[in-house]
Design a protein around this nucleic acid. Structure first.
Lengths: 174, 174
DNA sequence: TTGCAAAACGGAGACAGTCTCCGTATAGTT
DNA sequence: AACTATACGGAGACTGTCTCCGTTTTGCAA
């Protein structure tokens, strides 16, 4: 679709309606706002989230690497549509957002990860925190055209931070 | 100023020109774009960056806690004006941006931190990476109205991730 | 002081978005 | 076939950034 290649901001509703060969009025009857339309566009691939979780968890690797695999997949999905990462991440706490359903999916996925890897993770992580952390990374990756390995490195830092227990790092004096 | 309280997007140039009691034309002669105006507004407090670095480094604490102190201060500065974090972080790699000068300041500050704490940090960190990581955290904090302690927890994760060496975490099998 | 050139000003309006409103066409029912 | 209800389309209302140009002010020399 248009949004995929050009990004949310660069596509006008006029353009969409022309491409779809309908009037703008018709478009707005189906989707009350531009964001609602975008939400519908994002619907399909959001469903792949849960399978990505399973795939990461069945990996024969350390907890840290399973986590990293998930974070990478998650971030890749968020980055797939330009502008999506920031929008979805911003909507995480807002039940009124058009993206609320997607946020629930994502939070649930991270919850599943936490439960599966729990003993290896620091005790105070929660799904919201992980969602925000990788949402943040994905958002900057999205609008700065960062090379893939730089994104990977950032996610590595986050993964390490999430497995590191606080007790380990605190008493190490400089 | 207006931007500080209402945020970049919520302030129109008409509003600025009215408040300043000048015509929009006059406004645009002084500042060629809205972003350039915003850059000028941000000028003053960007200068506080370097002193924040020094303050963090003179703290009598572990490398991790010095790092965290700096990340906290840095993030707080980015969040001080609504909308600034995302903008500045997005401009990090773009020398043509109006914010390029500020990005240099920030990158330099992170470079200083890296040099000071280097033995305690993972070997592959660079200033750009830190800037992006905390820029990402600050950006989501900025447009999700996150409580301060949640932001602090996320920065803690990042700080731990930055001090954790890769060798430690990789061989730990689940 | 007066005259004049140059610079600064102000705001109307060009342009580009999102979204609404309403006249028209289409489909469904008896 | 007539009538009603529903869907359509696009003009235009509204709001934003930024430009253009006629007017005012300023600075300087005679």
């Amino acid at each position: 679709m248009l949004f995929r290649t050009k990004g949310y901001d660069a596509v006008s509703m006029d353009e969409v309606s022309k491409t779809a060969e309908v009037g703008t009025g018709t478009l707005y009857r189906h989707f009350p706002t531009k964001e609602a339309l975008y939400d519908a566009v994002l619907e399909a691939w959001a469903e792949r989230v849960n399978s990505a979780v399973e795939r990461a968890l069945t990996l024969d690797a350390s907890a840290r690497d399973q986590l990293l695999a998930w974070l990478t997949a998650y971030s890749a999905m968020l980055t797939e549509h330009k502008g999506a990462a920031a929008r979805i991440t911003a909507a995480l706490g807002d039940p009124g957002s058009p993206f609320a359903a997607k946020c629930q999916t994502y939070l649930g996925a991270n919850q599943r990860i936490i439960e599966a890897l729990s003993p290896a993770l620091r005790p105070d992580v929660d799904a919201m925190q992980i969602s925000r952390l990788v949402g943040g990374v994905a958002a900057v990756a999205d609008n700065s055209e960062i090379p893939a390995d730089a994104v990977q490195a950032m996610l590595g830092v986050v993964a390490d931070g999430l497995v590191a227990s606080e007790k380990d790092s605190l008493p190490v004096r400089a």
